[in-house]
Simulated scan of single mutants.
Amino acid sequence: MTRKTFEHLLLKQHPTRMGAMVLARTPQGLYGVWFVGQKHFPTALGGTEAPNDALLCEAAAQIDTYLAGTRRAFDLPLDLTRGTAFQRAVWQALQSIACGQTLSYGALAVQLGQPQAVRAVAAAVGRNPLSLVVPCHRVLGVDGSLTGYAGGLERKRALLQLEQHHD
């Protein structure tokens, strides 16, 4: 994507107990939630800082309650228009994994009707632009091992542990 693509974004910096995050939105909805410095963090985000934008403030509040262990799901309008059709299908499928549950990359590929596409599914999961909100951290290796998380494996482990202790 070119820098021009990002000019319409509204941005908010948000500190969390797991590290600083950047939230981005378009007129259609929440477009990005990244840990600062994570793998695939967009380095050329254009846009306008909007620390008081209603949707970005609501997203920040929901992230805070999720990380505090009092929220199990996010209720936000999402803009999943970026990425390929395949990536968008994977990101949609991630939203069906309930809090406290996990799924393997292979099982996700089967769910998508593409059992031979495990590596492509894993790559799409890794490119998820909406960390936490679209729960890519709930996808594990076939043996249950923690593999790949753009925000780092320590965060992935902490998020999964947090979800095991949700009320």
Rank of each mutant, 00 (worst) to 15 (best):
N128I: 00
Q111T: 03
Q116K: 12
H137G: 05
V142D: 14
Y105H: 15
Y149T: 14
L112G: 07
G106C: 05
L130G: 04
P129K: 09
A107I: 00
V134R: 02
L103Y: 02
R138Q: 15
A122I: 09
Q114N: 07
C136Q: 15
A150R: 14
G148K: 07
A120P: 02
V134A: 12
V118Y: 14
D143N: 12
T147H: 12
A122D: 13
S145V: 05
G106K: 02
G100A: 08
L140G: 04
G106F: 02
Q101I: 00
A117P: 01
A98Y: 01
A124P: 01
P115F: 00
L108V: 03
T102L: 01
R138T: 07
L140R: 14
L153S: 10
G152W: 15
L103S: 09
P129S: 05
V125H: 07
G148L: 09
G151E: 15
G148C: 03
D143C: 02
L108P: 01
N128H: 00
Q111S: 06
A107D: 13
V139M: 06
G148Y: 13
R119S: 11
G152D: 03
R138N: 10
G144S: 05
G151S: 14
V133E: 13
A117V: 03
C136D: 14
A117M: 04
V139C: 04
A109E: 13
Y105W: 07
L130W: 00
V142W: 08
S96A: 13
N128D: 02
Q116V: 07
L108M: 04
E154Q: 15
L108S: 05
E154W: 11
Y149R: 15
L130F: 00
S104N: 02
D143Y: 10
L103T: 12
R138P: 07
Q111M: 01
G152S: 06
N128G: 00
G113C: 03
C99N: 07
S104R: 02
A98F: 01
I97W: 11
V133M: 11
L108T: 01
R138M: 10
V125G: 06
L140S: 03
A107Y: 01
A120I: 05
V125E: 09
L112D: 08
C136E: 14
L132V: 06
Q101L: 00
G100E: 12
H137E: 09
L103M: 13
V110E: 12
T147S: 05
Y105A: 07
G148N: 06
S96Q: 14
S104G: 00
R127M: 11
C136T: 07
A124W: 08
R138I: 12
T102H: 12
A150Q: 10
L146W: 06
P135T: 11
L103F: 05
D143S: 10
A150Y: 15
C136P: 01
A109K: 11
G152Q: 15
S104L: 02
E154T: 13
Q114E: 15
G141C: 03
G144V: 04
A120W: 09
V125T: 09
R138A: 11
N128Q: 01
G100L: 02
V121L: 01
G144Q: 14
G151V: 14
S96C: 03
R119M: 11
G113V: 00
S96E: 13
V142F: 08
L130C: 05
A124Q: 04
